[in-house]
């Protein structure tokens, strides 16, 4: 094995190896917060009042942003990090952890979020990417990151860059769960392929997936992603949340699905309950009663490929 620490690539890989050892604090502490969010719902909020509604409904965390994805989609233009005033206002309003989004590759937005005391940064395809080629070097931060992924290669590249939590990308702002399902299933299919491959095939699999070899080996050994994996993108009902949980994700993000529904308080609490009792159809039937209309949706497969947010990220 190369031991140079001046070569950037080698350094990155080594850093992952060192930091991911259980006795080193940083990595476990970052990934540990994601462990605490498991079985929970993370909700997009655009005001401190909405953040309170989310907390009261039982959200484990809120994502502070200026516009929910369906509005970003409608408005078009360049979507950027939210105003620090808004983020600080939300941090002050709730006692649960607060997440916020930075543009892909925009490490200065991320530095600002860290300085504000944001608990988790979402390097998100929902915002307009700031870098066409490179994601943020997430090891440089004490603030942990969550990143979107559609398959194992994308997930392991983000983890290799230091992401401590992964979510499916889905197609944000549509209320159509189809792509979150596709991505969750794809990641699981890839994990099964790695798990069942003989060890001599792992290097070629790493090449095919464009994923760091050490992480492919870890997946082969453990049969799961090295970090917590949530679903995101298009979740609009309690049944959607339970569907993804039964498929095997560990928790859900709900973006536009709460505050674009008829009755946000009721919908938020119902999605929280469904994420706990995801495997109990009788409970899910009770939980799903009388919620009013879910958010109006757009069929994600009708959106031309070049307008899909999920293809952002490399």
């Amino acid at each position: 094995m190369a031991t140079s620490t001046t070569n950037g690539t080698v350094k990155g890989a080594q850093r992952w190896k060192e930091m991911s050892r259980p006795e080193v604090g940083d990595w476990r502490v970052k990934g540990g917060l994601a462990q605490m969010l498991k079985g929970g719902v993370i909700m997009d909020v655009v005001t401190p009042d909405q953040a309170k509604v989310a907390e009261d409904a039982g959200a484990v965390s809120v994502m502070a942003l200026e516009r929910v994805p369906s509005d970003i989609r409608r408005d078009g233009g360049v979507a950027r990090m939210s105003d620090p005033d808004l983020i600080s206002g939300i941090i002050d309003a709730v006692s649960i952890p607060v997440m916020a989004k930075a543009r892909i590759g925009h490490f200065v937005e991320a530095q600002i979020l860290e300085s504000l005391g944001v608990d988790y940064c979402d390097e998100s395809e929902v915002l307009t990417p700031a870098d066409d080629e490179f994601h943020i070097d997430k090891w440089q931060f004490k603030m942990p990151y969550v990143c979107g992924a559609r398959n194992i290669g994308e997930a392991l590249r983000r983890i290799g860059e230091g992401a401590a939590m992964i979510r499916t990308k889905g197609e944000a702002g549509t209320g159509d769960v189809v792509h979150a399902v596709t991505h969750a299933r794809q990641i699981q299919a890839d994990i099964r392929a790695i798990q069942h491959a003989p060890s001599e095939e792992l290097m070629s699999l790493a090449r095919d997936y464009q994923a760091p070899y050490e992480l492919v080996v870890e997946v082969a050994q453990t049969g799961k992603l090295p970090v917590v994996n949530f679903a995101a993108g298009g979740i609009a009902t309690p049944a959607d949340a339970a569907l993804l949980m039964q498929i095997g994700v560990e928790g859900v993000f709900v973006g536009s699905g709460i505050f674009k529904s008829d009755n946000p308080e009721t919908m938020a609490a119902a999605i929280v309950k469904a994420t706990t009792h995801y495997n109990d159809p009788d409970m899910l039937a009770e939980i799903s009663r009388g919620l009013g209309d879910a958010m109006p949706g757009i069929e994600a497969n009708k959106i031309p490929q070049e307008q899909q947010l999920q293809s952002r990220g490399w």
Partner: peptide, 27 residues
């Protein structure tokens, strides 16, 4: 503090023999 202040420490626990435990403190 917040997540950026989360940390690990060695902690001696009464009634637990042997080495101190590695304690993970998250928020």
């Amino acid at each position: 503090g917040r997540q950026v202040d989360s940390f690990e420490a060695e902690v001696n626990i009464q009634g637990i023999d042997g080495d101190p435990m590695r304690a993970v403190f998250i928020r």
